[in-house]
Amino acid sequence: MNLFRLLGDLSHLASIFILIHKIQTTRSCRGISFQTQALYVTVFVARYIDLFFRWISLYNFFMKIFFIASSVYILYLMKYRYRPTHDPSIDTFKVEYLVGPAVVLSLIFNYKFEFTEILWTFSIYLEAVAILPQLFMLQRTGEAETITTHYLAALGAYRALYIPNWIYRYFTEDVVDPIAIVAGLVQTGLYLDFFYVYFTKVLQGQKFELPA
């Protein structure tokens, strides 16, 4: 474990707390893409299946349990608890266009052609693009509640912090994970225009609004 990855995981943790806090305080999931949240549950279940057969550490164990449980809880909040505030008509990104290629790529580019390894690879590729329905919705509405932008900033920072973690591990532990690195760069790249608006507007106290 290194500081970058720890900060990344804490940023990921924070993003989930911010999202749950937003849904509970505003009693609504307005502006949140259900599809993106459902993709994250898929990512966590596919990636953390090794909970049943591989022990890494107490930290790893509890974080995996937390991420699966909290992301399922968010789906529950959106689908049942605050259902009336969920508007599927603006959450229309075709997730088949994300899941399909992730499946195909995981069958071609993987480290070992084994079931759990292909699931892990699929989760890595899917996570890289899982935010697209959310960004698509943001683009369509053209604005977002400030707390939602803090959620996205924390979520974007999580994988961005993994990049220095991979550089650090390359030089200190002599390990490299090309699949995770390429996917992580794509994932972080998708946030760049959001971060531009976030840092130039939201952090200057303005509302998050995309240029019309």
Binding site: R47, I56, S57, F67, Y111, Y162, Y170, V176, D177, P178
Partner: peptide
């Protein structure tokens, strides 16, 4: 550089 054996990252 050794490719990663066990996925120890989240």
């Amino acid at each position: 550089k050794g490719a990663v054996e066990v996925h120890d990252e989240l």
